[in-house]
Nucleic acid binder design. Sequence first.
DNA 1: ACCCAGTACCTTGCATAAAAAGGTAGTGGG
DNA 2: CCCACTACCTTTTTATGCAAGGTACTGGGT
Lengths: 118, 118
Amino acid sequence: MDNKIFDMENARAQMRKSLLEYCILLAISQGELYASDILSELKADNLIVVEGTLYPMLSRLKSDSLLEYSWKESKAGPPRKYYRLTGEGKRTLEQLTLTWQELTSSINSLIKKYEKNN
Amino acid sequence: MDNKIFDMENARAQMRKSLLEYCILLAISQGELYASDILSELKADNLIVVEGTLYPMLSRLKSDSLLEYSWKESKAGPPRKYYRLTGEGKRTLEQLTLTWQELTSSINSLIKKYEKNN
DNA sequence: ACCCAGTACCTTGCATAAAAAGGTAGTGGG
DNA sequence: CCCACTACCTTTTTATGCAAGGTACTGGGT
C-alpha cells in the first residue's frame, strides 16, 4: 500500500532538500492565514516563495491532514481560504522543529571545524 | 552574456533550496579531501549525501572555479582527486556562511512567534 | 601471466519539486 | 455592464537529487 501520511523517517532528508514546507507550517502556526498572508509573512522574514509553489503545497499539506481551512468573505474581492494547523499539523510541526535544530547543529559543527583551519 | 560564475544575488534562494553545496564546501574547507573523505565527513555530521549527487556537484564547483584538485596516488587502488578550495572558493564560502546565518535567524524568528501562540 | 576483488571516478535516466506562466472566477466601482 | 482587482488553481518548464550502471586502475592470489 505504502500510503504514507507524512513519512517522518525521511523528514531530515526532506528538510535538507527544502525548508519551504516547514516554513509554511511555521507561518500558519501563528493563526488563521490565507495565501497572500503567508506570502507576506515569509517575505517579511526574507524567505521568498511564490504563488506557483505555495498553492500546490497547501493542497498537499491539506490532503496530508496537517492543515484545514475555512472560507471567509473578504471586504473587496472573492472569498478567501483561511488555513490553520490541525492537531496532527501541530505535532508534525514540533517534530520538524526538532529536526531543524538537529540540522542546524550539524552544520554549525562543520562551521566550527572550518573556523579552526582559518 | 549572462555568464555568471556563481550568482551570489541568488545565493539565498539557492541555499533555501539546497544546503548540500554549502556543506560540501564546508567539508572541503578543512583541507585536502577526496570524494570518499567528503562522504564520510558529512555522514559523521548526519548529513547524508551519495556518490551520484557528489560527483556532479564537485565538477560544477570546479568549473565555477570554487574548487581545484590534484591527483594523488593511493596505497591500494587507483589514484584519487584531492580537492581544496580556491581563493574564490574561500570568499564564496564566507559569503554563504553569512547567508546561512541570516537564514537561521529568519527561521528562528518564525519559531519564536510560533512558541508565543502556544 | 592472469583473473578477481576492491576502490575510485564518472554518466545516464528517472522521479520529484520549485518556479513561471497561464487560466478561471468572484467583487465592487465607475 | 464593463473593467480592474483580487484570489484560487493548473499546466508547463526547468532544475535537482538519486539510483543504477559503466569504466578503469591496483594489488594479491593462484
